[in-house]
Design a protein around this nucleic acid. Structure first.
Lengths: 168, 168
DNA sequence: TCCATATAATACGGAAACCATATCATATGA
DNA sequence: TCATATGATATGGTTTCCGTATTATATGGA
């Protein structure tokens, strides 16, 4: 492994190499996105969940406790559609739906940790492979990569919000 | 980035730091996956395509020319479902469906480059933000990150195939 | 060649999901 | 207190999904 984390700034010594690297990385990111969606689809099939249900389940665990309307906004789904998603997730035991004490119209969603271990188990193959990949890198390199992912996620949030308001 | 310690090999100097880094990276990867799915959902909404249609369009452009059954296998979709997906993609002008000259039962799918620029345009916001992020890194670092993504994509292919055969 | 069998894609139809709209319960503020 | 807003769900028409049947073509013997 040649590339390290040793450099101090992002200034490019060779602009041509930099441009090529950026283009290649974007293609790799796109391929990664598609493949992770495919993996997710199979996981969902095993768990008898639609793709969107699994996405919502992820969103709940990232944001719990979360209300239905907040989740609808995060997922970009119509409220009525989200009711159906929640019904399925609740019926399958993946989440619980509670009344909000401070606003009795509202509903609060939480994951069922016990049940969600089943999802984790379906990802265990991928998990092990990622461990093998990570073993090829130093901790510093992994932190560099993770940092890039965090920034890209933030960019995704912003780009999503922008598309959202354009359609509004 | 942080402390410029050894970056000469993949061996971890501090196993504890390495484990923490791997755990954090997995969480970041998961967040990234979800957010990219959300972004994709908005892009699909603008293009009047279902999420799965957009995934299939990506798969076609990655594998074209590709047959319908090959695509069904890649996407993990029932053949009859895929017919519907292809109908929508063709109706929208995203792909063309040709008869295979060497096997007249088969259909060959290709993207319409002209039309697919519309998708590219919907991703332009994200694209620009990624450029900004990449500017923070050296070309060597970007190559390191891209390499990690490639390996992760390969891992995704393997994990997907494994889940596939477990269900069969 | 002829036929049995396999394979690619699509047609069909019932079940499920999606979502615009209406509805009900509750909150908020004039 | 009441008008209005808001959160979630119910309703119903439209679309999608997918198991199965069907059609067209290919392939490998006898």
């Amino acid at each position: 492994m040649k590339n390290g984390t040793d450099t101090t700034s992002g200034a490019a010594a060779d602009p041509r190499q930099a441009r090529r690297a950026v283009t290649a990385l974007k293609a790799d990111l796109r391929d990664l996105r598609v493949q992770l969606s495919m993996l997710n689809h199979r996981v969902g099939a095993q768990a008898e969940l639609r793709d969107i249900d699994l996405d919502c389940l992820d969103l709940v665990s990232q944001n719990e406790p979360v209300g239905a309307s907040a989740l609808a906004k995060l997922a970009g789904l119509h409220p009525a559609t989200l009711t159906g998603v929640i019904d399925r997730l609740e019926r399958g035991g993946w989440i619980v739906r509670e009344r909000d004490a401070s606003d009795r119209r509202a509903v609060v969603l939480r994951t069922q940790p016990e049940r969600n271990r089943d999802i984790y188990r379906l990802y265990s193959g991928m998990n092990g492979l990622i461990d093998e990949i990570c073993a090829l890198y130093t901790a510093d390199q992994l932190e560099l990569i993770a940092g890039f992912m965090q920034r890209t996620t933030s960019a995704g949030v912003r780009a999503t919000a922008q598309l959202e308001e354009e359609s509004a």
